[in-house]
């Protein structure tokens, strides 16, 4: 494949060295595709087209090859997200435990719909598959932090 070597890489040194570290214990560069996407996302919050192109270049694959992978996974964000992503479990136990009410509460409290980012760019609300904390349903993650046994008042506290 012909690579455009001339695109100045918008990846930072730190990103590149993190990615190269992943590559070092894989049989080929392409195998690091998901790791690379996650690394860059961890620095930038999401994967812009420019980031995607730069990662593809670094991994010696085409944008198509990389984006086909990126768009498969729900935790690779190909659109901008807020400072923190709210992953609200919408699976069965949380549903039984009135997760819908929690969802309504978050939506009205933050004035967003599922998939949207708050006006202050602080939060993006996304549904997520069962977070493995069903004995404390309803459950959500805000950024890296797990919140469980949610009630509408807890929601207000968390997003105060």
């Amino acid at each position: 494949m012909k690579l455009n070597q001339n695109i100045p890489s918008p990846l930072s040194e730190a990103e590149i060295s993190d990615i190269e570290a992943e590559i070092s214990h894989l049989p080929d560069r392409k195998s690091a595709a998901i790791d690379a996407l996650k690394i860059v996302q961890s620095y930038r919050g999401w994967i812009s087209d420019a980031s995607l192109g730069a990662i593809a270049n670094l991994l010696q694959m085409s944008n198509e090859e990389l984006d086909g992978i990126a768009t498969f996974y729900n935790l690779i964000y190909r659109r901008p997200v807020g400072e923190k992503v709210i992953l609200l479990c919408d699976s069965v136990t949380c549903w039984i435990m009135d997760g819908d009410k929690i969802c309504q509460k978050i939506k009205s409290h933050l004035n967003v719909e599922q998939g949207e980012t708050t006006a202050d760019n602080k939060f993006t609300l996304l549904p997520v598959t069962c977070l493995g904390d069903c004995d404390h349903a309803p459950v959500m993650m805000v950024g890296d932090e797990l919140h469980h046994d949610l009630t509408t008042t807890r929601v207000e506290e968390i997003f105060r």
Binding site: M1, S62, E64, E65, D67, G68, T71, F72
Partner: peptide, 8 residues
């Protein structure tokens, strides 16, 4: 290299 399946 420039055709792929996207999404799921």
């Amino acid at each position: 290299h420039d055709l792929n399946a996207f999404g799921s």
